[in-house]
Amino acid sequence: MFANIWQAVISGLSIGSIYALIAQGYYVTYITTSTLNFGQGEFLMIGAMIGLTAYVVLGVPFPLALLIAVVATGLMGIALERIAIRPVLRHVLTHSWVLSTLAISIILKNGAVSLWGPEQIRFPSPFGEEVLKIGNAGIFPQELFIIVCALGTVAAVQLFLKKSILGKAMMAVAHNRNAAAVMGIDVKRMVILAFMLSSALAGLGGILIAPVTFAWAYMGTVPGIKAFAAAIFGGLENPVGILIGGLLIGLLEQLFGVINSNLKEGITFLFILIMLAFRPTGLMGRRTVEKV
């Protein structure tokens, strides 16, 4: 039992850090445009499939395959902003972006089936399949790699936003578009950058998680939505809340999985429903007062 719990904690942290990673992507686009990509899960899938192609099919070394996947999904983020976000931002219906990004995700799924087929494909971990024994629990090295890599990236993104001039400019756009513009910051470019970053984070998540799950066209939907839950849980505008949300949701579902596998899938959503009933803008979200 104890070993199970210990194992669940590691798995929970590793899947949770993936959620946190993808949710950072929701964060950067939400603060800059008040929209987010509901197809983030499909960008994760594309990252995994491109990584798979590069690493397994073409035999590219793993770090390079990872880089290719991240860059490719980042570039797709630029296209996403141009096709599905910019044209609908000024729309009368404020929810247009939900459907436009979902439409892209549907198309991407079909694209993946066309290119890679509908089957689940095994993605061999670059760290081998040998189980590490820590105490009496067995842990895949890939899981540790996920935790380190995903959390490291989350930290790097935050450092970028807080310390680099480009990141500060992006935060400035998020705080106050007009003020940013009169500082000479090109708001449009910052928005594109946000979507690029957001998509690249999802792509990275994909290549990290694929060795633990499988790589296939439908792999992205659930992590994309769980990551959305993480972002909502923490409050879309609060990066620390999002990190906590991601890890907590990962832990929660793995730990409940130990007790009863039936609880595993539902618990996240039950949890988030209860939380939102009491805190409608997330655990650490700002409470908005409508200005009249």
Partner: peptide, 23 residues
């Protein structure tokens, strides 16, 4: 839970409900 939630938060409430039922 939907009364005070807006935008993406409201989307999440409904989405979570849908998943709960499915699961």
């Amino acid at each position: 839970p939907s009364l005070r939630a807006k935008g993406p938060y409201l989307a999440m409430v409904t989405l979570a409900f849908g998943f709960m039922v499915e699961v």
